[in-house]
């Protein structure tokens, strides 16, 4: 039978991950992604402080 209309995770679920612990826990790709995120965060955050500093003095 065809599996048209059923997501792949149902028709061919991911093979069970190896039973043992992967001691290395190496996720270099994700590490790159989260640092890109952090950089974007830092830039946006401080740009907003800069924008704020252009206003009238308010207190």
């Amino acid at each position: 039978m065809s599996f048209h209309g059923v997501p792949q995770g149902v028709t061919s679920p991911p093979a069970p991950a190896s039973a043992g612990e992967d001691e290395s826990h190496k996720t270099p790709g994700t590490l790159v992604l989260v640092f890109v995120f952090l950089a974007a965060f830092v830039v946006y955050y401080f740009v907003n402080w800069k924008l704020l500093s252009f206003l009238w003095r308010i207190g």
């Binding site: 402080w49 704020l52 500093s53 206003l55 009238w56 003095r57 308010i58 207190g59």
Partner: peptide
């Protein structure tokens, strides 16, 4: 910013 900044909503 309360200490050094010029814009606070206090």
């Amino acid at each position: 910013w309360h200490w050094k900044g010029g814009q606070n909503p206090t």
